[in-house]
Design a binder for these strands. Structure first.
Lengths: 153, 153
DNA sequence: TATTGTTATACTCTATAACTATA
DNA sequence: TATAGTTATAGAGTATAACAATA
């Protein structure tokens, strides 16, 4: 079997040692994995999934906290919540102690969907652990946390 | 000093162990770091920087290879190259052996800018190594490579 | 005056379909 | 028929400015 003339192998140069470059590539990969396991199945975007996970684990959260936790600007969060509310997955209840703020809570449907998505995320991580051992997986997350600094709850 | 009533600490729930979530957060952080060190200074976006680095290390590359290497679709690469060409940073020279394909090469100005940006990227990585030790930095890149699988040169 | 949330808007990023010209 | 590159266009994703209501 005769191959075509091989092009000289690509030299990655400085990119090789730039953490951000590899982080970005990994983000593309994990986004695809997310899409096949959760996005397509549940009709959820990444941010929407993250949002549901936070609401699933915290009962009720003000938009302000969601905004900071997920680094979504307030205007964009409004649109995000609108979308999920229109789908009947969550509701906004006024805060009786402060007329300016709200509490976002899952509807029963939202809670059910979030629980299913959380379950699917376990399968997703298992696929990822096909490429990374369990120890490597844990180590990776630890290093990424160091890199991005402390979260803003 | 009397603090305000502390809200119950945020529970991250399933997100805590989802690699993709942390990869995405880290990508936001590294994008900001890139912006201050390179983006603002040289007027380059991330992809544009990556592209220049590849051209700096490889003399000449066909758009097809750039497209695969950086996971940029062909139509978007065209616009990307247009922009950089308009800035006088690169030129497209026809391939004499195949009328369909081209070679993208840096102009002297492009080479100079790319070299400066490459230099600045070292400073950028030094800042990142303020959060990660040198060994952790290397380990992180290794794990990210495993996660995203082999590149497509 | 500061804060919460909203509206309107724009710019970047990425993807797809349809085209051309060469092979 | 298949491939390299282009054009046109649309959809996500993210950001800022200006506003309303409440504190």
């Amino acid at each position: 079997m005769i191959g075509r003339p091989q092009p000289s192998p690509l030299k990655w140069g400085p990119l090789e040692s730039i953490a951000g470059f590899h982080v970005h590539r990994a983000a593309v990969t994990t986004a695809q994995t997310f899409e096949t396991h959760i996005g397509k199945t549940f009709g959820l975007r990444k941010v929407e999934f993250s949002l549901l996970m936070l609401l699933l684990s915290n009962e009720a959260l003000a938009p302000k906290r969601l905004s900071r936790a997920l680094s979504v600007t307030a205007p964009n969060l409004t649109l995000l919540l609108d979308r999920l509310q229109d789908r009947g997955l969550l509701t906004r209840v006024p805060n009786p102690l402060d007329g300016r703020s709200q509490n976002v809570v899952l509807t029963p449907e939202g809670r059910s969907l979030a629980a299913q998505a959380a379950e699917a995320s376990k399968t997703m991580e298992l696929e990822i652990q096909g490429r990374l051992s369990s120890a490597e997986h844990a180590m990776l997350i630890e290093l990424l946390l160091k890199l991005s600094g402390p979260g803003k709850p």
